[in-house]
Design a protein around this nucleic acid. Structure first.
Lengths: 213, 213
DNA sequence: GCTCGACTACACTGCACAGTGTAGTATGGC
DNA sequence: GCCATACTACACTGTGCAGTGTAGTCGAGC
């Protein structure tokens, strides 16, 4: 064991070189296209036109590389407006707004690819999958808060804001997300996506909305 | 190449012995618990208290073994009543009936485990995932037909039966299926499941139902 | 001109796993 | 007794892949 070789088992590079970006880009493409298990470090190195050693010089291992990519994509996608209940605005408009944001987020091509990969990777350890794809958790929280506020304000007649939020999301996801993810269906056009949200909000308000308000 | 050894490259056993069942049982448990990639043929053999050779004597390979198991579980689960539109019965009751069947099917523990594994395995090739889990496709067809009939009968006011069916399913799945599958949530109690279906049908009819009928 | 950090090329270890080949054992029917 | 069937034990091939070790190249700054 020649342990005195250089500096021991620490990462050998730290700077943010152009090669690092090449690796990240190549790895993103490979992971999103072929999944975690279906992508080898050799392929990534080859695609990045970089030696395998360089990959390991910038990232400690496959998992770390994948995590870095997932984090980066999620950060890019999670850059969305907050949705806070506004008593003076019509409820329908507010529900449409958050619904559209939700639908846009989950139909984003990169989010879908990432979902595919993360779900394939972590579905055996479900907690991690939900944890990693927290982008839409944040929106779900906003939605629950909005529904709770609308209820308190007497404009919605519902028991559980959590359940109602799930229903609203389910209405949208079953049209705009799951068919594309698990059945290879083409992504919804903007037009169709917006129609799906309008329909979902229509169903929602016909049931939970209070007549006069 | 000693090709004259026994009989060439054909499967060596054909009978339905008790060992075959042991292999199937063990493989079912292993696959459902650890997924396709997470299960090795050695583990299956060990769990079945059988030599590895015996596994290969009954099944040509890992894929075939998995397919046999998936088919068997799906056959068991797909054994469900047909739901055909009955003009004389109240629509609500009919929607509740098919909704409850749907919810029962997808909340079945074995169906969920199988879904997990199949989704993890085939989500990169989405067509296969939908194809394998056809159990709920059959119900979806029934549901679409039922909605189309209800529309023709003037009891439902909707454009697309396909879209409406998706919405009804989405309302149920987002409460009773996906949280359990991807977030490790406890399965819904029978009581909660039935409440979810009633709520979904309520939302559905408040929007799509025709007032008088 | 030398050094140092980033990088390459490539050989190599170690592992897990699918699938095979084969010699040998136990059992029941003839 | 004999033979076939079902099965075991186990060694073995081949492959794909994560991760490492190392000698050497190249360019920038001193």
């Amino acid at each position: 064991m020649p342990t005195e070789s250089t500096t021991g088992p620490a990462p050998r590079r730290r700077g943010h070189s152009p090669k690092r970006k090449a690796v990240l880009d190549a790895a993103t493409a490979e992971f999103l296209a072929h999944g975690f298990a279906g992508t080898s470090m050799d392929r990534i190195a080859e695609a990045a036109r970089v030696s395998k050693r360089t990959v390991y010089d910038h990232f400690p291992g496959k998992d770390a590389l994948f995590q870095a990519i997932a984090d980066e994509i999620l950060a890019r996608i999670s850059d969305m407006p907050e949705h806070v209940y506004a008593p003076e605005r019509p409820l329908e408009a507010q529900l449409l707004a958050i619904g559209h944001t939700f639908a846009e987020t989950i139909t984003d091509a990169e989010f879908m690819d990432l979902s595919r990969v993360v779900i394939a990777r972590f579905i055996q350890r479900p907690s991690m999958a939900e944890n990693t794809l927290k982008a839409h958790r944040r929106l779900r929280r906003d939605m629950i808060a909005l529904l709770a506020a609308g209820k308190k304000d007497g404009r919605l007649s519902l028991r559980s804001p959590e359940m109602a939020a799930a229903q609203l999301c389910g209405l949208i996801k079953e049209l705009a997300f799951w068919p594309q993810l698990t059945a290879g269906q083409e992504p919804l056009s903007t037009r169709a996506r917006r129609a799906a949200v309008r329909s979902a909000v229509g169903l929602f308000l016909d049931h939970y909305g209070v007549r006069d308000a």
